[in-house]
Amino acid sequence: MNPVNYLYLSALLFTIGATGVLIRRNAIVVFMCIELMLNACNLAFVTFSRMHGNLDGQIIAFFTMVVAAAEVVVGLAIIVSLFRTRHSASVDDASLMKL
């Protein structure tokens, strides 16, 4: 099977994730979309690794997973505490940092 197809899939997944980040308000969904984008990247890395015949891409994919895991821990904590204080999980409500 042509590995390029995996790249197409990766791009598709990434686009879905990006669109989700941009148009959804619910923080959990936005969060999930970010995960989707990260995993789309992982897919692309692995595919490239396969295409080029070395392991660099796969190693990077591991890194990405670790980062994603860390991000999940921190991000979920933020979302939960945000929900506790504001009784909402909408990202648009959290705009207090503007000047």
Binding site: A18, V21, L22, I23, R25, V30, V91, D92, A94, S95, L96, M97, K98, L99
Partner: peptide, 17 residues
Amino acid sequence: MRKLQNGFARSYAVSMF
């Protein structure tokens, strides 16, 4: 320029993309 800094995470994301 200041108005661009509106605090909405999604609009920042748009500019990033």
